[in-house]
Each structure stands twice: as C-alpha cells, then as structure tokens.
C-alpha cells in the first residue's frame, strides 16, 4: 500500500537569481513498512525530495499524494497538521530544543497534539525505555553525546506513532559505531512496529541496510532496487 506518491515532481530553486533545477520529473513512492534509502552524491536532490514528501516544501511542478490526497497545493496550516499527525523527522544535526530536557523534547511533539501531561509523560518514558535512553530523561542536549541526542531525536520522531519517519542524513554527525547502534534501533522499530522509514544518506552503512535503495543523480532518479 502506497503512503506517499509523487508524480512528475519538479523543484526549481533560485540561487542568487539563477534558477537551479533540484528535482526533475521525479516519480517516487513510499509503501507501508518501507525502509528506503535515498542515496546519491551531494546536490543530487535527496534532501529536496525528502523535504517535499515531508510536506516541508512545495513543488514547482508535479504532484505529491499522501494517502491519495494531493498535498502539493495545500495551505501551510494544513501541511503543519499533516506533519504533526502523520510524519516524524530525524535531522542530521539532531536539532533538539536546547532549553528542554530529553524527556521534555520528546513530550514537546505530543504537547502539540494536545495529549494530556500525564499521558505524554508516561508515553515518553515508555519510548525512552524502549530505546534504552531512560537514564537521559533529565539531561539537556548539551549534557548528551551526539549518539544520545540522536536517539532522543528518534524517540521524539516515533512517539506520536507517525505513518512515516523521514531521516535526513541521520548518521552523518556520528561515528560509525554509534551510527550502527542508531540504525539497529531504527531497523528494530521497522521490523517490530512496522514503522516506515525513508532516509536520505550517502553513508555506506545506511545504504547497505536499506531494504530499498533509490539512487538520485542531478535531480533525477537514476536507479531503484530492492535489497
């Protein structure tokens, strides 16, 4: 079952007044339970595609369907609601809120959906337990290592039970060992909970672990294969 589907997607950026074609006629889909990696060299359009299917940006041309609804022309407010309820994000630089503790960062995502304080505390603790970061609950981001912060970011992404988690270069700032641990966690989430993951990465160990590999080059899909 396709959760996300793009049709003839184009994205053109303006860079100092010069148009730059970031994506060209991209047809791509994400199915339930996918563990897909978007790979390719820098400037190939991985992050642009991830941003578009994550409702963070709008296409220049073409359509994006989320659960068969065209979201390419939706208003920012509607896209915000979609991101909150259906999508989870993991970023290269972790991007935790520095003034909140680990557990508060995880709760923050739930707060936006209106979950009661008691329930979100319990759910945050459960997720932290599951990811083995329970002891980090009261630590602020500057008191945690990169790997720890990224695990908290994963917890924040999955705690609202999104349909898809989009991870932009999640291991880029981590050493290979820590990156492997993080990938183990995400793989487990995918297998045990059937959470759908889409990565953009050029990290070989991420590419190796992807069940589906989509290679991008110059804004176009060059190849696609199941692994």
């Amino acid at each position: 079952m396709e959760i996300i589907k793009t049709e003839n997607l184009d994205k053109v950026y303006e860079d100092n007044g010069i148009p730059v074609q970031a994506l060209k006629n991209v047809n791509f889909s994400v199915r339930k339970g996918d563990f897909t990696v978007l790979a390719g060299p820098s400037g190939s359009g991985k992050t642009t595609l991830l941003n578009l299917i994550g409702a963070l940006d709008s296409p220049t041309a073409g359509k994006i369907f989320f659960e068969e609804n065209d979201i390419s022309k939706k208003k920012p407010r509607e896209l915000s609601s979609l991101r909150l309820s259906k999508l989870g994000f993991i970023f290269q630089a972790y991007n935790l809120i520095p003034v909140l503790t680990a557990i508060e960062n995880i709760e923050f995502a739930m707060m936006l959906t209106g979950i009661s304080e008691k329930e979100r505390r319990q759910r945050a603790l459960d997720v932290m337990e599951e990811l083995g970061i329970r002891e980090l609950a009261d630590k602020r981001p500057n008191e945690m290592s990169g790997g720890q912060q990224q695990r908290v970011a994963v917890a924040r992404a999955i705690v609202n039970n999104p349909m898809v988690i989009l991870a932009d270069e999640p291991t880029a700032n981590l050493d290979s060992k820590t990156g492997a641990v993080l990938l183990d966690i995400m793989e487990r989430m995918n297998k045990e909970k059937n959470i759908t993951f889409v990565f953009s990465s050029h990290d070989p160990q991420v590419i190796e672990r992807g069940k589906r590999l989509v290679m991008l080059h110059d804004g176009m899909i060059e190849s696609e294969k199941e692994q």
Binding site: S80, A109, L112
Partner: peptide, 15 residues
C-alpha cells in the same frame, strides 16, 4: 534553525 525544526515537527504558527 530551531523555529525550522519546531515548524517541521508540526508546531502551528499561532502557537
């Protein structure tokens, strides 16, 4: 950057 993050998580402009 942080505003970008909280917006992508789904925080609405009103909030």
């Amino acid at each position: 950057r942080e505003f970008g993050v909280i917006m992508s998580i789904g925080m609405k402009n009103s909030r």
